[in-house]
Amino acid sequence: MLNELRDLICEYVEVEESKVKEDSKFIEDLGFNSYDLMCLVGALEDKYDMEVDEKQVANLRTVKDAIRYIEAAV
């Protein structure tokens, strides 16, 4: 799961793959802005055929949060 997410993240932000870790924070560590986050959420919905509740987006602070969210949803 981490590797799949790493690939998606690197599609949207310019970050070295090795720097994407489970405890990486999207905004502080990976440099995501609101548009990047919306791209990633849209891509996750497409890839895992799920719907991300917008109210939960603010709670997806780290890569691990996203992994947990996907695992619970699919």
């Binding site: 949207y12 609101s34 919306m38 791209c39 849209g42 919905e45 497409d46």
Partner: peptide, 17 residues
């Protein structure tokens, strides 16, 4: 207020937004 640089956009984001 919100500003964005005009650039190629993502279909995934468009579907979400």
């Amino acid at each position: 207020i919100d500003a964005e640089k005009i650039r190629p956009w993502s279909m995934a984001a468009m579907r979400k937004v």
